[in-house]
């Protein structure tokens, strides 16, 4: 991704884009010069600045901030699967290992993608945890995470479900910005596929009440992750109470109503949740 590609894409999506910013053509010239002289790193910053100028509204969070936030979460997830798959204390079935290897590949690919987009504006992995090493026990909350397969999958499920919530919560910060928003959405739905797959593994391992979707609030059976699921039991969507709607037999059930809408988390909520693992 590069700035010129992005502007071109915006032009396609929003033909009036150039016209709208024409009084400030200088902004584009400046950025062009800026980009060629300084670092690619400056581009995302410049990009968000341009948007503020173009649309005359200050974004509360810059595109770079959102992408770095995503990168930090992907660093955590990638490191988690890398550690789990390498852990000698964890014995996975061949099916489980295949699922995990697929997910691991995606999380590492997400890291590579976000780093390439951010360039030198990317937060370094070494700034996370202790010199880049995470505490997957979260300060002793999950002492057996790398020795007990069930604990590992429980934490994996919480990570994936939380990742879905994090991207969802961040999406409005990218409102109308075709390239970065679409990229974020395309990662968001993959995290949801992962969450579903990990939940299916847990269901197969005997956590019978765990479904591929989130029922109620915290349905993991682990109280330590209650906060990760706070608000997932919401029944009201856009002013509509879902349980007041007609289902196939009577109204939509409470379980179905909570399952069929995933809920967002704010950046502050997510940062607090992943802080104990070492995300900064």
């Amino acid at each position: 991704m590069n700035l010129f590609g992005i502007i071109e894409e915006i032009g396609k999506a929003d033909p009036e884009f150039q016209d709208r910013i024409s009084p400030r053509r200088d902004a584009i010239k400046n950025i062009t010069g800026f980009g060629s002289k300084v670092a690619v790193a400056a581009i995302p910053f410049a990009f968000s600045t341009l948007f503020k100028k173009a649309y005359g509204q200050a974004a509360t969070v810059s595109v770079t901030d959102v992408l770095n936030y995503a990168l930090k979460l992907e660093y955590l997830e990638a490191a988690f699967y890398n550690a789990g798959i390498a852990a000698t204390g964890l014995t996975f079935s061949s099916t489980e290992r295949a699922y995990l290897t697929t997910i691991q590949g995606h999380e590492n690919a997400h890291v590579a993608f976000l780093k390439s987009v951010l360039g030198s504006a990317a937060v370094a992995q070494s700034t996370q945890g202790t010199n880049g090493t995470y505490d997957f026990t979260a300060g002793g909350t999950f002492p057996t995470v790398l020795t007990n397969v069930d604990t590992f999958f429980a934490v994996a499920q919480a990570f994936e479900d939380t990742g879905v919530r994090a991207y969802k919560g961040a999406a409005p910060s990218l409102l109308g910005q075709q390239v970065p928003l679409t990229a974020a959405l395309n990662i968001h739905s993959v995290e949801a596929r992962h969450a579903s797959a990990v939940r299916q593994i847990r269901r197969a391992r005997g956590a019978a009440t765990t479904k591929p979707w989130i029922t109620g609030a915290n349905d993991t059976g682990i109280a330590a992750v209650n906060a990760n699921y706070a608000g997932e039991d919401n029944l009201n969507q856009g002013g509509v109470t879902i349980t007041s709607l007609s289902g196939v037999s009577g109204n939509i059930s409470t379980n179905a109503a909570t399952e069929c809408f995933d809920e967002p988390l704010t950046m502050a909520q997510v940062v607090a949740l992943v802080g104990p693992f070492g995300v900064k």
Partner: peptide, 30 residues
């Protein structure tokens, strides 16, 4: 949903679309 997200102008609607698309992705994975 992923393709239409950027066309949405109201952030609340974008969030609603996001709430639904991740459930569709959970279904797809299953």
């Amino acid at each position: 949903y992923n393709g239409a997200g950027y066309l949405i102008q109201n952030p609340a609607y974008l969030t609603l679309a996001g709430k639904i698309v991740s459930v569709e992705a959970r279904h797809a994975a299953y």
